Simulated scan of single mutants.
Amino acid sequence: MKRLNDRAFHILQTEVRRCLDSGAIGQVQLELALRRLEKFRLQSGTPVTEAELKEAIVDLIPTFNLKVLRQAAKLNRPPSGFWFGLKLGTAAIALSAGGIWLVNRPIPWIRYPVMQVAPFLLTPSYMAMDHNYRRAIALVEQSDQLVNQATAFEDLDLGTQKVKAAQKHLDELPAWFLGHYPGDYCRWAGCRWRFTIDEFESARKEIARLEVKLFQEKNAQTRFEQTEQALGEAVRVIRDGATGEARMNALIDWRGAIDSFNQLPESTLAGKLARTKVNAIDRDFREAVELGQ
């Protein structure tokens, strides 16, 4: 049995194409989304759930209609008349899930006996730790690139988002697990990392450093944008042919904008951008002064 039947696939395909026609996505997102759906369609096994469909589509198309997802998931379910058996199965699964949830809680006197007798029951917490670790490290690296090698303010905005996401994943890493390496899990999951206290603290310090850096960058960006606005107004007044006191005040504001640009920290993106434009601004200022004499 195909994991995604034709009816459900066509409903999802129609909605994806509608998103393209409305301008909500581009051609690349459309092709990636359809490729993921086609992959489900070619697989055999249990029907794809609503959660799986959401995970496959929503990261590419955030505005995707969730009602369509729900409808497709409903159509994808195989018909069955064994409701009683289904209820019993659901109850058994719920009880099992509850038991697994309990043994995976960060309670040493529960975990350690299970670790000795049936370590496979701890797989969910190992998987969660593995996922959060990988995402945290990847996001820290991305954040470092975006913040320390930013070429535009948009890079800093994206860097801020990455830092927050990295911090969230670090917060999800259980402190009681520091220094513990799940050997059985990693033998079949292919872990290539060692979750140590030093590594954990290093990641936290890097995030803290980036947060300080972003705070400085944001302050400098605010001053840069305010200075640009004041400069633009001063230049407009001069070019409109202002005379007398109005012209003098505009020249003072222009000179003040040059000074403000020069005072921005060179270590910030705003400071670097200011240095690239301040010479031209100063030259235009001198010309404006000479023309008024």
Rank of each mutant, 00 (worst) to 15 (best):
C186L: 04
R239S: 06
G183M: 11
A166H: 08
L122Q: 08
K205W: 09
H180D: 07
R209P: 02
R247C: 04
V147R: 05
K218W: 06
R236F: 11
R194G: 12
I258Y: 02
K168P: 00
Y185E: 01
C191S: 03
D130Q: 12
N148Y: 14
A203N: 12
W176N: 10
G241L: 10
N148C: 02
E217R: 12
C191W: 08
Q226G: 02
T151Y: 05
L210K: 06
M127H: 11
Q167H: 06
Q226N: 14
F215H: 11
A250L: 04
Q142N: 13
V212W: 04
P182N: 03
A208C: 02
R187L: 13
G241H: 08
S143V: 03
T123C: 01
V147E: 03
R239Y: 04
A150C: 05
L178Q: 11
A257C: 05
D130R: 13
P124K: 10
E233M: 09
D155E: 05
R223W: 02
W193P: 00
K164T: 10
P182H: 09
K213G: 01
E228V: 01
G179A: 06
G244T: 02
A230V: 05
A138G: 12
D171P: 10
Q167L: 05
A230G: 01
I207S: 07
R187D: 10
L139V: 00
N148S: 11
T151F: 07
E233F: 11
I207E: 04
F224R: 02
F153P: 00
V212D: 12
E206K: 15
E141S: 15
I252N: 11
L173H: 09
D157R: 15
L173D: 08
I137P: 00
Y133K: 05
D184L: 09
V147S: 07
L121M: 15
P124E: 04
K162T: 06
F195D: 04
D157C: 01
L173R: 14
D171Q: 15
H131F: 14
C191D: 01
G179S: 07
M129G: 14
Q216F: 06
E141K: 14
Y133E: 03
W193F: 15
A230L: 07
